[in-house]
Amino acid sequence: MPQLIATDLDGTILFDRKVAPADLDAMRRWRAAGNLLVVDTGKSVFATRDTLEPVGLAFDYAVAFTGAVLADGDYRVLASRFLPDGLAHEIVMSLRGIDGLTVFATTLETDYVVEDTYHEVSPILQVFVPMEPEEMTEHRFIGVPMRVRDDDVRRRIVERLTERWGEAIEVVRNQEFLDVIPAGATKGAGLADLLARLTGSDGSRSGESIETWSFGDSWNDISMHTVADHPVALPWSPKEVVAACESTAGSMAELVESVLGPRRGRTTATTTAGEKRNR
């Protein structure tokens, strides 16, 4: 039976825009064994490529922008969903004047920053192009990511957006970010759509079932964990994420070894979750 790992990036395998050599080696080993590697991320395709190409991480598919975009391993877009025309601009204008907030707007090609009160760059989203809100009418947007550090401000923003546009959008949290995306677009929905492609009449693996593992640390990964056969959280994930999973693993290398077994001639030492998190 084919096997597939769907992994989050930031806070799961990607830390300060770097992937640990052991994790990189494990993912290469996974694919070399004939298995599929899927990155399931809140990042845009543009940001995913900007982050992963420099570290040399190859994959088979990307479920990008929290399920709104599906791309292949060469970053070619296979499917995409957009916010209704004009809605991204309305959302951005509704957020103006809120202190402690950086607002982005994402097309298929580019991440734009349209409002910034922090005046600093987050390691999660580092490359973007400035855009004035009035320029937004010239583009189609997939989503509106925003960086919000304060929990109370974040909660009020979620309430405001869902009350006004709840039928047209999803608002999901990833660490200190909120992502506003088209209704029905989640990491889990994106993974489910990919699995349907792979096992359906148009899929390259038509007629085969695929055993799936999910690996992710944050709230926006819960929908992905719900779809997978074997959901796996990080030991330090929020309690809601751990509760949605059947197990935890301290690293991608640990997860791959638990599925494929250790390399021949290699012994492993037991490491606590806290040691893994801090190393």
Rank of each mutant, 00 (worst) to 15 (best):
P2R: 15
A6C: 10
L9R: 05
I13L: 15
I13K: 07
I13D: 01
R17D: 13
A20I: 01
L24N: 10
L24W: 09
L24S: 10
D25W: 07
W30G: 10
R31M: 13
A32P: 00
A32K: 14
A33G: 07
A33F: 03
V38E: 03
V39M: 11
G42I: 06
G42P: 08
K43D: 10
S44L: 02
V45R: 06
T51D: 04
L52G: 04
G56M: 07
G56L: 08
L57P: 04
D60M: 04
Y61I: 04
V63Q: 10
F65V: 00
V69S: 08
G73F: 02
D74A: 15
Y75E: 00
R76F: 03
L78D: 02
A79H: 11
G86V: 06
G86Y: 09
S94Y: 00
S94M: 05
L95Y: 11
I98W: 07
I98M: 10
F104Y: 15
D111H: 03
D111N: 13
Y112H: 15
Y118V: 09
E120I: 11
Q126E: 09
V127W: 06
V129M: 07
V129W: 05
T137G: 15
G143H: 12
R147G: 01
V148C: 10
V148L: 03
D150S: 13
D152G: 05
R154S: 15
R154N: 00
R154F: 01
R156I: 00
V158D: 01
G166F: 08
A168L: 15
Q175N: 14
L178M: 06
L178F: 03
L194Y: 07
T199R: 12
G203W: 07
S206G: 13
T212P: 04
W213H: 09
D217Y: 07
N220C: 07
D221V: 08
M224A: 09
H225R: 04
T226A: 12
H230V: 10
W236E: 10
S251V: 05
A253K: 01
A253T: 03
A253D: 12
E254Y: 01
E257F: 00
E257S: 14
R263G: 13
R264M: 02
G265R: 13
A273F: 06
G274N: 05
